[in-house]
């Protein structure tokens, strides 16, 4: 039984912004299906009343005071940019506003 089809993998890859090539899809889809099948065993383990654990330590209310700290300079901020322009980060055309 297949949990994860080749199409599913292609779809999820696009959700993750990875443009897989066909030969990659061929290779990854089978492996992922096997892995998903295996991790799926977890479904039957925990009862509904078990609380989920998102953090290993029970810390709460860790905050900082609203005090300004030095920022990077514009030059530092843009130092690794593939396409800086006029103090800003150049990016390809954006399809639509969020």
């Amino acid at each position: 039984m297949s949990n994860l089809s080749r199409d599913d993998v292609a779809h999820v890859a696009m959700l993750a912004r990875i443009q897989l090539e066909d030969h990659e899809l061929d290779r990854l889809a089978g492996q992922l299906d096997q892995i998903v099948d295996w991790v799926g065993q977890i479904n039957e383990v925990a009862a509904a009343d078990v609380p989920p654990m998102s953090h290993p330590l029970p810390l709460v209310n860790v905050t900082r005071p609203d005090e300004v700290r030095p920022s990077l300079t514009q030059q530092q901020a843009l130092a690794n940019a593939p396409d800086p322009e006029g103090g800003r980060f150049g990016v390809p055309r954006i399809l639509d506003e969020e």
Partner: peptide, 11 residues
């Protein structure tokens, strides 16, 4: 998946 895994973590 993720929700169950977090519960198993508690266990």
């Amino acid at each position: 998946y993720y929700g169950q895994a977090q519960k198993v973590r508690t266990l």
